[in-house]
Write a protein that binds this DNA or RNA. Sequence first.
DNA 1: GAATCCGCTGGGCAATGTGCTCAGTACTAC
DNA 2: GTAGTACTGAGCACATTGCCCAGCGGATTC
Lengths: 157, 157
Amino acid sequence: MAIDHLDGRIIVLLAEEPRIGVLEMSRRLGVARGTVQARLDRLRSNGVIRGFGPQVDPAALGYPVTAFATLQIRQGQGADVRAHLATVPEVLELLTTTGSGDMLCRLVARSNADLQRVIDRVVGFDGIVRASTTIVMETPVPLRVIPLVEQAAREGR
Amino acid sequence: MAIDHLDGRIIVLLAEEPRIGVLEMSRRLGVARGTVQARLDRLRSNGVIRGFGPQVDPAALGYPVTAFATLQIRQGQGADVRAHLATVPEVLELLTTTGSGDMLCRLVARSNADLQRVIDRVVGFDGIVRASTTIVMETPVPLRVIPLVEQAAREGR
DNA sequence: GAATCCGCTGGGCAATGTGCTCAGTACTAC
DNA sequence: GTAGTACTGAGCACATTGCCCAGCGGATTC
């Protein structure tokens, strides 16, 4: 759970050149191949590295519109709402937040017009009392973890 | 930009077993190795697959608290605020949304108490007028794209 | 102080996958 | 009918992987 400096460099290197391979990493980092392998295994079993899945860009898939919907849930209907939203492909993420029965929901759509269809499908469910939506215009900082990893590595020295 | 059924299966397979390799994929999909390779190249150059970076879990890194901050920005200070927030490691994502000068900001922290420090650092900047924060409690649907890919593949047939 | 554990090194091995090339074969478009 | 495109199946040299081992230093324990 504590991150080493070497661990940090491994993660950063892996983020910059995902197809790099253990051998090449060991060369660049100046350590033995087995060391890198062992560190990687540890990071994976620790859960720090969850996986290496492909990062898919919804925009390139034809879903250029992103929005966030704040949902107000009727008491006791939480589980049903979750199950409902899990079946909607355009729901990319669902979070429950502080506040009485609130959820935050990340959506994508093919266009602003299409967003209406998606929202209708999302809120067309009994347990949802109210929904308010904000559309994302720009993404100045796309989802990232590298700076956080570097900080954790620095502190974990 | 249009996704094929085969493309979809490639992405799904890659998401389920990221370390799988082209040869094994071609065997499972029942197509030639060159085909898979060509499809992958196309998906990458199309931008559909952005990369294969490691998926790091902030919680396992020691940052188990996630929060969203809605920031109200003073007119014309947008660029400065972005630059400021980009320097904060705990800022995992920054989005500009509809509404006058609003930004949405995804944060992590070591604890609820630590969140206060992070927020202070985030809002301790001239261009930010107001900030309201909601803490994430649960994640019923973690960030996902597979259902979307499958839908796109179905429609793109 | 001695014994022990642990992580790192550096090496060696067989097996496998990769990048690349090529010729042949559908299928579509013009 | 001809060109262009996509897929197949095969071959090749090369690099990488997964796995093993012996040795070595540092920290911990008794």
